[in-house]
Amino acid sequence: MRQLHATTVALDGRGLVILGPSGCGKSSLALEMMALGAGLVADDRTDLRLSAGRLMAQAPLPLLGRIEARGVGILTAEPAPPAQVVLACDLGRAEDQRLPPRRHVEWLGIPVLLVLGPYRPHLHAALRQLLLGRRVD
């Protein structure tokens, strides 16, 4: 098992791990995704594990069903079950290309598609669509 300083949401069991330094907007992006139907897997810390060859994300028990809304407080949310990680977004690394190459990050030996931030107004909608569809290369 590996623990990341990251927030994770899921759509249809497909997980998005949101990375970045403190205060970069991980929880804000997760809240936007949740407003579009994503479930909260974990906020602030995400536990990763392998299960039948799949990379799975879940919340540490003390954080289950909780998310920080900066300037509002800690909110409760119906916790989503552990999700298979299929996508990552790093809000701490800038994307300088309009149509970037396919990038990956690897956790526990499993490559995961990586999108670089920082936050852009359409990012939550694009990530939702990427979770539900696929990227055309």
Score class of each variant (00 low, 15 high):
P79S: 08
I74A: 08
C89F: 06
D44Q: 07
A42Q: 03
E68I: 13
D96H: 15
R45G: 05
E95M: 04
A69I: 12
V115D: 09
L87I: 03
R54T: 07
V105H: 01
D90R: 00
I74D: 12
P81W: 00
G53L: 04
V86P: 01
T46C: 14
A42L: 06
P82T: 03
A77R: 10
P101H: 09
R70M: 11
A80D: 12
G53R: 07
R93M: 14
A59V: 10
G37H: 12
G53H: 05
P101L: 08
L91V: 00
L87S: 02
G109D: 09
G73I: 10
I67V: 15
R49M: 11
I67F: 03
T46F: 05
C89W: 07
G109A: 10
A59M: 07
L36V: 05
T76I: 13
L40W: 06
D90T: 05
I110D: 10
V115Y: 12
R98V: 08
E106W: 09
Q84M: 13
G65Y: 04
R93E: 14
A38I: 06
A83C: 09
P81I: 03
E106R: 13
P82E: 02
L63V: 06
G39K: 01
T76L: 15
P60F: 06
R66A: 11
L114H: 05
D90L: 01
E106M: 13
L113Y: 07
C89M: 08
M56T: 00
H104V: 14
L48Y: 06
G92S: 04
P111E: 15
D96V: 12
A80F: 02
I67A: 02
R45P: 09
I110W: 05
I74F: 13
